[in-house]
């Protein structure tokens, strides 16, 4: 089993963990963390492929992902704070206004 395959496998498994977490957890903040897990998995895959191909483009993509992740977290957390202010809850099951 090559290092390359190990990294890809870890990436895939991490991504799956993130997916499952997003689907299963109720705490909105933890759901966000799971999204971060997924992003990290993607980053790992990027770096791995970058190494495999001998170019740095994959690493560049990692920077972009990180920048977007930072923006996303800032927005997401402020949404959570706002929701908490209005409903005193961060349970994602309580936020069902999309239904209407």
């Amino acid at each position: 089993m090559s290092d390359f395959a190990i990294c890809l496998a870890v990436s895939a498994a991490l991504f799956t963990l993130g997916v499952v977490g997003v689907l299963v957890k109720r705490n909105a903040i933890v759901v966000f963390m799971c999204i971060e897990l997924m992003l990290n998995a993607a980053n790992l895959a990027f770096v791995t492929f970058s190494r495999q191909h001998g170019t740095v483009d994959g690493q560049i993509f990692v920077f972009f992902v990180m920048a977007i992740a930072a923006a996303e977290v800032a927005i997401g957390l402020s949404i959570i704070v706002t929701v908490f202010r209005n409903r005193a809850s961060i349970n994602v099951d309580d936020v069902t206004m999309l239904r209407r």
Partner: peptide, 15 residues
């Protein structure tokens, strides 16, 4: 391990 040192450091700093 994959010699992406800069990305590794940024990973720590940012994440």
């Amino acid at each position: 391990l994959q010699q992406a040192y800069f990305v590794a450091a940024v990973q720590i700093v940012v994440y």
